[in-house]
Each structure stands twice: as structure tokens, then as C-alpha cells.
């Protein structure tokens, strides 16, 4: 087994290693790392799209401005459709999450790039933030009525305690699934590409099949990069809706 590993030399997890950006081995909480670099690139890309792209404030938009407006309209409609009109107060928050995830995912697909969203720490902070925010908001807005999302009045009375238990468990699993879905998807895609790349490296010049496979997986990853950002944002909207209107 050890010989095989050294023959193939595939290290799909190497790409996720966090290294200090300017050399050295010390990693304090403030040390800029490769993750910091790619988060910064994501910030610059978002500013480039949403601030510089809309600099013209044109009635007839330029191409960049159209994309910025499309992103705005996409998230705006999502919030209105799922969370309702009162959800619009939290639209900047959801837009922040969506833009950060979508740009991290797509920038991470560049060769040699680093994907911050493939790290559990990153997605867990976002998911826990959403979870705590939504829970506090739910209690602040509805008081104890917020607990009615666990007590399903449509079900027969005998079933309600069991359903309440299930609902409570699923409520507390939310941040876990919310974060692991995103990180797992990103990690899985990148690891699979890396594994195929390892095959290609082992086969040398005749590696047609692994390269075709990499292309196919890469196309799938482009789709997944967007869908996961969409899913993260829309689930945030769904949780927000539960906090705003626990009745239904």
C-alpha cells in the first residue's frame, strides 16, 4: 500500500493547506496566509464588479453593469420570493454571503488557486452566524411564539411530541448541514480533480482519459460552484422566513 502511494504520488489534500503568505512557519491569528490572499482577491473582484462596474450609473448599462444588476436582481428576487418583503431589511447580509461564496468558489477553480469555502472553519462560521442570527431574530420578533415552528398544529395531537423532537433535532442540524454541504462540495470537487490530475501525472503523455475526465469534472464544478452559492443563500432565506413568519 505504501509503495502504491509513492508510485502514484497523489496528494489531493495538499491544495487545502494553509500556509503563511510571506514564508515562516509561525501561524498566529493575524498572520496573512494564502487564504487571506484569496479572500482579498474575492473582495477586490466583488468591488470591481459591484462598485467599479456600476461607476457609470448608466440608464443603458454597460456589460459589467448588466452583470452587477443581474446579480443584484437575482438575490433581491430570491429574498422577496422566499422570505417575503420584510426580509428585504436583511438583503445586504444575504447579498454579502452570496457574493463572497460565489466569488470564492469561482476564483478557487483557477489553477493553483486556494478555495476559502472548502474549509470547514470558514463555512461553519458563516453557517453558525446565520443560525445564531436567525434564532435571535426569531425570538426577538416573535417572543415565545417562535417555538411554534417545532409544534406542528396541523399534525394529530398524538404525533406532535415526536414531530417536535424531530423538528428540534433538524433545527440544530441546520448549521452543520449548511456548512458541511458547501465545504464538502468544494472539497470533493477539488479533490476529485486533483486525483485525476495525479492519474494524468502517472500516465505521462498518454493521459487522454484523465484529462477528458478533468475537463468533465471541471465543467461540473463550474455548475456546482454556482449552485452551492445559490443553495447557501436560498437556505439562509428559508431560515430567515422561519424567523420572520414562524406560523407557516
Amino acid at each position: 500500500m505504501a509503495e502504491e502511494a509513492s508510485a502514484f504520488n497523489i496528494h489531493p489534500m495538499d491544495q487545502f493547506v494553509i500556509k503563511p503568505l510571506f514564508g515562516g512557519h509561525e501561524l498566529n491569528w493575524y498572520t496573512p496566509t494564502n487564504e487571506t490572499l484569496w479572500m482579498g482577491i474575492a473582495i477586490l473582484a466583488i468591488i470591481g464588479l459591484l462598485v467599479l462596474g456600476t461607476r457609470g450609473r448608466a440608464i443603458i448599462p454597460s456589460r459589467t453593469q448588466s452583470i452587477a444588476e443581474m446579480a443584484y436582481g437575482f438575490v433581491y428576487n430570491m429574498v422577496v420570493d422566499v422570505a417575503g418583503k420584510d426580509g428585504l431589511k436583511y438583503f445586504p447580509m444575504i447579498m454579502t454571503l452570496f457574493m463572497f461564496i460565489v466569488f470564492s468558489n469561482f476564483l478557487g477553480l483557477l489553477p493553483m488557486a486556494f478555495t476559502p469555502t472548502s474549509h470547514i472553519a470558514v463555512t461553519a462560521v458563516m453557517a453558525m452566524g446565520v443560525f445564531l442570527f436567525v434564532t435571535i431574530l426569531g425570538f426577538a420578533r416573535n417572543g415565545m411564539k417562535f417555538l411554534s415552528i417545532f409544534w406542528i398544529s396541523a399534525a394529530p395531537l398524538a404525533l406532535r411530541p415526536i414531530l417536535a423532537l424531530i423538528e428540534i433535532i433538524s433545527y440544530f442540524v441546520r448549521p452543520i448541514s449548511h456548512s458541511i454541504r458547501l465545504a464538502g462540495n468544494m472539497m470533493a470537487g477539488h479533490a476529485v480533480i486533483k486525483v485525476f490530475a495525479g492519474f494524468a501525472g502517472a500516465l505521462g503523455l498518454g493521459a487522454v482519459a484523465p484529462i477528458l475526465a478533468i475537463s468533465a469534472v471541471y465543467a461540473l464544478e463550474m455548475l456546482v460552484a454556482f449552485i452551492q452559492a445559490y443553495v447557501f443563500a436560498i437556505l439562509t432565506c428559508v431560515y430567515l422566513k422561519d424567523a420572520l413568519h414562524p406560523g407557516h
Binding site: 487564504e35 462560521v125 458563516m126
Partner: peptide, 10 residues
């Protein structure tokens, strides 16, 4: 480290 930079970024 990650959480610090993430919170800053967001």
C-alpha cells in the same frame, strides 16, 4: 486565523 480573516473579509 481563518475565522479572523473571514470575519474581516465579510
Amino acid at each position: 486565523n481563518q475565522i479572523f480573516w473571514l470575519v474581516l473579509t465579510l
